[in-house]
């Protein structure tokens, strides 16, 4: 038995040893499966985070970040496997079927009591998705104008408390199970505007919502807790230190910024809401 384990560890070392990164042994023995990094994402995974719902391709911001982190941790692209989870599956108690989960999880203190988050890999501004018709009807990127709109949001996102804290709409907001339903309601004229992270909002406005447009964005430092995305892990996951180290390294080296520039549309030209 011991012999077998030793052999496996040795094999692992040989496999990873070929990589050039320095700090690539921190994950050994801490993953679900030795020598394999299991990463979870949403089902489906949305543009621009993952292109064509195919994270294996490494295309899309989160897919690229995941592979960069994996490489930092000493895993070849071949040694990465993907699984899909819903939000609920990710937070339910009990053993997880992933090492970490990457699907735009905003880091909040409440959530941190139940699960572990890595250091943030992205800081997002929140943006207001709306339609041309609403703009023509007189909606403006001012808080006063925004308050009078009929709002919608994805119920599983931190857009919900932000909506209340920052905008404070006059009428109760409508909440939905996912982006698709939010956009359906917008298309049906049941809501005027919806709050999303900027990349998602840009994508929805350009591709999904007919006549969709971005009314404006809230600066990332607008609220006390800017919306920061982190990798979600089971609480007490021994891998956390290793993951954080990888992200730290990617941030310092400027690699993370490169990936962001490559996959996330520049947010220039979107007016900032005062």
């Amino acid at each position: 038995m011991r012999l077998l384990a030793t052999t496996a560890a040795a094999l692992c070392l040989t496999a990873t040893g070929a990589l050039a990164h320095g700090d690539d042994e921190c994950a050994v023995g801490k993953t679900l499966e030795d020598g394999v990094l299991t990463i979870a994402t949403g089902n489906p995974a949305f543009y621009p985070w993952v292109l064509n719902d195919a994270p294996e391709s490494g295309e899309g911001f989160e897919a690229a970040v995941a592979y960069a982190i994996a490489a930092e941790m000493g895993f070849d692209a071949d040694a990465v496997t993907w699984v899909r989870t819903s939000f609920d599956e990710a937070i339910q108690p009990g053993p997880k079927n992933f090492d970490f989960n990457i699907q735009q999880y905003s880091i909040t203190p409440e959530r941190e009591q139940m699960v572990d988050f890595s250091l943030p890999y992205y800081t997002s501004a929140m943006a207001v998705l709306t339609t041309e018709a609403v703009v023509e009807a007189g909606a403006e990127p001012t808080l006063e104008s925004l308050r009078g709109l009929l709002w919608g949001a994805d119920a599983n996102t931190t857009a919900v408390p932000m909506l209340t804290e920052i905008v404070g709409p006059e009428r109760d907001a409508m909440l939905y199970g996912d982006n698709v339903d939010v956009t359906a309601a917008m298309q049906a004229g049941q809501i005027d505007a919806a709050l999303f992270d900027l990349p998602t909002a840009l994508y929805l406005a350009a591709v999904v919502v007919e006549g969709g447009t971005i009314l404006g964005q809230f600066p990332a430092d607008r609220s006390d807790n800017p919306d920061q995305f982190g990798l979600l892990m089971e609480e007490g996951n021994p891998l956390k230190e290793c993951v954080d180290h990888a992200i730290e390294h990617l941030t310092e080296s400027g690699r993370l910024a490169e990936i962001e520039a490559e996959w996330l549309q520049a947010a220039t030209g979107v007016p900032v809401i005062q």
Partner: peptide, 20 residues
Amino acid sequence: FIGPVEIFRQAGVYKSLMAN
């Protein structure tokens, strides 16, 4: 599912915010 924030949705929002 189509927008109104009744008890089930409200519970979902709390669940999401608190991961609980």
